[in-house]
């Protein structure tokens, strides 16, 4: 529930932003911004439905763990 309230706040801000952009007729800005906004909205809805989103740090941890082990052993 709390995620949806926050989503509404962000969407209200985005709505006011789009009104300004529509007046200036900057189509490219609207399209790119709408793409990112839809990604954001999708992620928030997934969070609200309590889907476990993968964290980028877990990927980084897996990739760089050998280097960390190597450095720790080197500098013991």
């Amino acid at each position: 529930m709390d995620h949806l309230i926050i989503l509404l706040i962000f969407l209200a801000g985005a709505f006011m932003e789009y009104r300004v952009l529509m007046k200036k007729r900057q189509v490219r800005d609207i399209v790119v911004s709408a793409c990112f906004l839809s990604v954001g909205v999708a992620l928030v809805l997934l969070r609200q439905l309590q889907v476990n989103l993968p964290s980028p740090m877990m990927g980084i941890n897996v990739l760089f763990k050998p280097i960390d082990l190597f450095m720790s052993r080197l500098l013991k």
């Binding site: 962000f10 911004s33 992620l43 928030v44």
Partner: peptide
């Protein structure tokens, strides 16, 4: 115009990091 979408995605990623 990108600030609000970036903020929204950062909000979600910060929750799962």
């Amino acid at each position: 115009s990108l600030l609000i979408p970036i903020g929204l995605i950062a909000y979600v990623i910060a929750g799962t990091v």
